[in-house]
């Protein structure tokens, strides 16, 4: 697949000496939804701001659709839309006017039909002439997305789009993001909510302390790093894990009624058959069993902690 953004050896050291990015390499494919995950202060926003031209890089390069983002900044910036993390709004302006302004600022001729379409897709059309200060936080968030889409960008950055947004609006925004991808827009999403990446992203990148520590297809990542857990509800409580089971990674619950067995899905042999056989031989019976897979959130926490 052809990358729409390619970031090479990108570093950023702020004036105070803080190194926010350390030689970041990253490629974003055309038309994908890319989830950029990382704890607070990991460098997510710095990375986005450099690509968009708000922050100047220290070294490295950012190529967007074949154009360098400093030398050919007009070409690159007109292709990008950015929805920032905070909610900065022009208090006394109306949603319609700010969208019209954004479109002009990004060098596109007026197109009332497009603005109407964008505002309607975000359920803002009936609020289009209200002053921004009258709008709720969720509405302001929508207006910022509408502004970013007003100039028909090929690449959309959503920096924590659902921070502080209620459940319903979150679902709405996810639908908007999916619809955008359908229309061919590449979406780069940063988020704290791993669930969001899990729901939306095609690929996931994890950034920690200014370094990209992992980029992987979401499904593959979950398959490879996702641990499975088998829980056995015992018919009779145990005081301790019986001898002879040392070879298995077993865990006994405090009250002795449950045995937990962890296994990797990528392993050739999960060991389940052998374990169940051994339990049978040892005369340990169970009433029920269930398996569960770790979520992206658990994977993420483990990755970040491993780095620390």
């Amino acid at each position: 697949m052809q990358p729409v953004i390619s970031i090479n050896e990108l570093t950023k050291t702020y004036a105070g000496g803080f190194q926010a990015l350390k030689a970041v390499d990253l490629e974003i494919n055309k038309g994908e939804i890319f989830g950029l995950l990382g704890p607070n202060g990991a460098g997510k926003t710095t990375l986005i701001n450099i690509v968009c031209g708000i922050v100047t890089k220290t070294s490295g390069s950012v190529i967007i659709d074949g154009y360098d983002n400093e030398k050919d900044y007009r070409a690159t910036r007109s292709r990008i839309g950015l929805v920032p993390q905070e909610l900065p709004t022009e208090t006394f302006e109306t949603p319609y006017n700010v969208c019209r302004f954004s479109r002009g600022l990004f060098g596109k001729p007026p197109n009332p039909d497009h603005i109407e379409k964008v505002l309607k897709s975000l359920s803002l059309w009936d609020k289009k002439d209200e002053k921004m200060l009258m709008l709720s936080g969720g509405m302001k968030r929508r207006v910022l997305i509408a502004k970013a889409l007003a100039h028909e960008p090929e690449v959309l950055f959503l920096d924590e789009p659902t921070a502080g947004v209620d459940v319903e609006l979150r679902q709405d925004l996810w639908n908007v993001v999916r619809a955008l991808r359908e229309s061919g827009v590449t979406v780069i999403l940063t988020t704290h909510y791993i669930e969001e990446a899990e729901q939306l992203a095609d690929r996931v990148g994890v950034i920690n302390r200014g370094e990209v520590i992992l980029v992987e297809e979401k499904n593959k990542l979950m398959r490879e790093l996702g641990k499975k857990e088998l829980v056995l509800n015992l018919a009779e409580r145990l005081d301790a894990i019986p001898p002879g089971f040392d070879g298995y990674r077993l865990e006994l619950s405090e009250d002795g009624s449950e045995l937990k067995y962890h296994y990797d899905t990528k392993g050739e042999h999960t060991g389940i058959t052998a374990l169940l056989g051994a339990l049978h031989d040892a005369g340990i019976r169970f009433n029920d069993l269930n398996t569960s897979q770790s979520s992206l959130e658990e994977i993420f926490v483990e990755l970040v902690n491993r780095e620390a």
Partner: peptide, 13 residues
């Protein structure tokens, strides 16, 4: 002051 300058800085101008 309000933060809306991000748009101007990210615009092709």
């Amino acid at each position: 002051f309000s933060g809306t300058i991000f748009e101007l800085l990210s615009a092709p101008v």
